[in-house]
Design a protein around this nucleic acid. Sequence first.
DNA 1: GCCGCCATGTTGACATTGACAACTCGAAAC
DNA 2: GTTTCGAGTTGTCAATGTCAACATGGCGGC
Lengths: 196, 196
Amino acid sequence: MARPYHHGDLRTALLDAALQAVEAGGHASLSLRELAAGLGVSHAAPYRHFANREALLAAVASTGFDRLAQAWLAAWQGAGPAGAGPAARLRLAARAYLGFATERPALFRLMFQGPAPPGAEAAFAGLQATMAAALPGAAVAVVKARSIALWSALHGFAWLCVEGRIRPAMLGPLAPGALLEAVLDAALGPLPAAPG
Amino acid sequence: MARPYHHGDLRTALLDAALQAVEAGGHASLSLRELAAGLGVSHAAPYRHFANREALLAAVASTGFDRLAQAWLAAWQGAGPAGAGPAARLRLAARAYLGFATERPALFRLMFQGPAPPGAEAAFAGLQATMAAALPGAAVAVVKARSIALWSALHGFAWLCVEGRIRPAMLGPLAPGALLEAVLDAALGPLPAAPG
DNA sequence: GCCGCCATGTTGACATTGACAACTCGAAAC
DNA sequence: GTTTCGAGTTGTCAATGTCAACATGGCGGC
């Protein structure tokens, strides 16, 4: 069965393969030629679908943001014991953010480097919407400030973990679980309790 | 005046040039050959002093951590109105961290990518020492947890700013200055007031 | 049913780069 | 004065991103 001249859906095939390659070896070692060879097309075929290497990586990063936003919203909407208050749900979403980063470290690294790909702002908008729901009646400026503070703390902790910058030797008597809770407390800040 | 066969101090010359090149164009576009040509040596000369490109970049990152630690300690030790309490001094140090990141964005990006270069842990140790001074009598585990929470929040905010992920359009009615203060408040957390 | 268009792939080429091997220079040690 | 060896050079190779020129074949218009 000879391959047809036209691949059929090379664009999505490239995206899938690139995502896999990034997760496997990091975006730095991704080679367009290797990718093309793996899909059985010539080394210049990818240029029919992406202007250059950077554009392909940006597309991969974009799908990463879609997944991250999805994970965040799923944790916020679906989960938690019935009747859990916004504070508890926000904490679950924050855990989802950290879980995403630690489960897909290479994708996470790619997502937050270079110019923001499409989807990045939408992901933050999701975070902000949940923060608004957790702070009923708060002023817009307050919600935005708290959202960025939360995002910063979560992102910083995730990044430092993913890059291996928080070494067990640095923790001393502090248990990793306790550290996680302390970081979450600081990141989330004061929140109103669950409504009775 | 013919150049002597031996450069004299090629290693430090390479480090200086690499630092400049990184700050000018980012570490991704740094080329060993270009660097060597700029210093008037052959394209293979750098390999006598650094195992590979990565090793040179790691050395640059290491000096970056030295400077960051220095900036942090200087802000903590030297500055502030006389008699300022630990909380105010810690806030100044935090501002110094953010200032470092925004003034040398490309170096900052390099420093926090890949394996931690020598000097990275010492820089964090400096942060932790100041936190310990700002929380007199606190348990070691508490100091460590608070230090990492502070580091995470600062680093996350700095990174998002440096990468242009916090766009003015996202702020709405929130003034940038107010955002900075809010992030600092959240990052620093509750601290004891200045001693009478 | 035939034909031409053009998106999609292919081949070929080029410059750049990181990296290694083999050679050479010259300053310092003896 | 000779030797040694760190430091720099030349030459080379493979891999890669990118572009230009060409080939293919499916689809719409006739």
